[in-house]
Amino acid sequence: MSNPSELELSRRGVLTVGAVTAIGVSAPVLAASENATTGASTPTIPVSFEVNGKAEHLSLDPRTTLLDALREHLHLTGTKKGCDHGQCGACTVLVGGVRINSCLTLAAMHEGDTITTIEGLGSPEKLHPMQAAFVKHDGYQCGYCTPGQICSAVAVLDEIKRGVPSHVSANLTDRPRATGAEMRERMSGNICRCGAYSNIAEAMAEVAGARA
């Protein structure tokens, strides 16, 4: 009989091993192509910020996006690279509690900032309510867009709470409410190839205490 612990290799573990392998293979290629493009080394930029409550100090090629700093330098691979052009939302993280596309900002532009990634929202032992709701409502299929969806969803409910209006708010000066239409409009920057949208809306509605 196999040792159960060997079988209990988690999906997260498999993904981590896979990612490390991919980095191992691609890193020299990346370095070579960077040298070919530049023909010279670029002075690095020191940057310090807080990620998920931990102070980080990095010295980076100025071209390093916040996304690449998180994934490749801090090995926080929960945040995903989808389109790398701000169109899909897979890279969504919270900076100062506000959601942004981490692929469309340079790490060097975030000196002193407070960053929260999916790893900082909750842990497998203690899920964030939005993570728990995504699990309960099956708000994903392949899971690739999920960290971005969850970070975005958490920020959307905060935006509604803070009174930020949206394109579908009927009256600009009224306080917006967490209706299905409001949440769907505000989530339009997060694409799900598997089409889990209705379940994502259900999960958000549960956390918001509203109907999807």
Binding site: G86, N101, G163, L172, S188, N190
Partner: peptide
């Protein structure tokens, strides 16, 4: 800018235009 109450009240066309553009993540940046 879109969420500023003076803009919402007195220059609604500007709030509406901003909110019709891009995504929430992009508008934040």
């Amino acid at each position: 800018l879109a969420a500023d109450m003076r803009i919402r009240r007195d220059y609604g066309v500007l709030s509406r235009a901003l909110l019709a553009g891009a995504s929430g993540q992009l508008r934040n940046k």
